[in-house]
Simulated assay, not measured.
Amino acid sequence: MTTPLVLLPGEEVPSDHLPPTKNNNPLKLGPGLRLLSQPSTSAAAGHVLTATQAGLLTTDAKRNTVSLLSFSNRRYLPTTNDLIIAQIHHSSADYFHCMVTPHTAHALLGQLSFEGATKKTRPMLKQGELVYARVLSVGIGAGAEVELTCVNPATGKAEPGGLGPLVGGMVFDVSTGMAARLIRASSASPDQTDAVEGLVVLSELDKKLESVGGFEIAVGRNGKVWVDCSNAGDSAIQATVAIGRCLQQTDEGNLSTSEQKKLVSRILREMKIG
């Protein structure tokens, strides 16, 4: 077993930290890494893998994937295939121009990049509305445009996780590291989530809010979390705010599993929910 490895932007990934190739399956790259075409003796298959951000290198031998776990920070660098929450700034003839992070160039979302969209049925999104989208491409070099999509290019379907406009609810800011943890935890099996990510805040909220109608959540790698508790009736606003507070305080305090459980109970009690 290799020792944990922290990489800085621009550093190469040593070949001995990559999962072994099986059945000629191509290595899959997760967030934080980039494949360069120049040959190198230090990287697998004659290619150079470099880090695009600082983080902890992780591998998954079963899925033949390698990725970089970013540290808790507020800066987000778009990476192809990332799921993000974007806000519509304005529209043009063919695109919606979206804000992904503050003080950066707008990303482009095609007006027909929605499931079943035609010129007559495409969504008429207005300034300030939100979409759950996937990063389709990021371009190369300074000033390169980021392109988004709300469908799987291979199937034309809004998958996974219900890509498309986000109606209602509230958005809360967390660090990009916390966003990545939430996404990984949500994709893990229930018996692995606690052990792998140390996150129980969502499962605790789910159990305690089930009696009032539960909630929906969408997590963007750009540090945005959309929460909707519209089924909670008169408690919808309080429940939504409570979830946001729990996520943000877990992030800011780097709380342990026991501390997360106590936090959920305390905040729901303060908000008089359940």
Rank of each mutant, 00 (worst) to 15 (best):
L49M: 06
Y76I: 10
P78L: 03
P31Y: 04
S72Q: 05
A51T: 01
R63L: 14
T41I: 08
L36G: 04
N24Y: 14
V66Q: 11
T104V: 02
A93K: 10
T80H: 10
Q111L: 02
Y76D: 13
Y132R: 04
T50D: 05
V131L: 00
D60V: 11
E115P: 05
L57Y: 15
P20H: 03
L112P: 08
A105Y: 00
H97Q: 02
S40P: 12
H47Y: 09
N73R: 15
R63H: 05
L83Q: 09
M99W: 11
A86C: 01
I84W: 12
Y95F: 09
S92C: 03
S37N: 04
L49A: 01
T118C: 05
T79C: 03
G110H: 06
T79S: 13
Q53G: 01
S40V: 12
Y95S: 03
H89P: 01
K22I: 05
P39G: 06
L29W: 09
L77F: 12
S91D: 13
T58A: 11
A43K: 05
S70R: 15
T121Q: 11
T104W: 03
T52R: 07
P78C: 05
Y132V: 01
R63C: 02
L108F: 00
C98R: 00
H97D: 00
H47G: 03
G128V: 12
G128K: 04
T80M: 09
A51S: 09
L27Y: 14
N25A: 14
S113H: 01
K120R: 10
I88G: 04
K28P: 08
Y76N: 04
N64F: 13
H47D: 01
V131I: 12
R63S: 15
Q53T: 10
T21C: 09
H47F: 06
F114V: 07
G30P: 03
H103D: 13
S92E: 08
K126D: 14
L33I: 11
T52W: 06
Q53W: 02
F71M: 02
T121N: 14
Q53C: 07
R122Y: 06
T21K: 08
A45P: 00
H89G: 06
R34K: 15
N81H: 14
T101P: 13
Q38G: 13
R122C: 12
I88C: 03
N64C: 08
R63M: 00
S72H: 12
Q53M: 10
L56P: 04
G46E: 10
Y95D: 11
T41E: 14
H90F: 08
R74M: 10
A45E: 15
G32T: 09
R134K: 11
T59C: 13
R75T: 15
S70W: 02
T121L: 11
K22T: 14
V131N: 02
L33G: 07
R75H: 09
L35T: 07
G128L: 09
A86S: 10
A43S: 14
F96N: 07
N64K: 14
V48T: 15
P78Q: 07
S42C: 02
K119H: 15
T79Y: 10
N25C: 09
L36P: 05
T59D: 06
H47T: 13
E115I: 02
I85Y: 05
A61P: 15
L130W: 11
L77C: 01
A45D: 07
Q87A: 05
I85L: 03
L130C: 01
N23A: 15
S92M: 08
L27R: 10
K22L: 09
G46P: 03
R34W: 06
L108C: 00
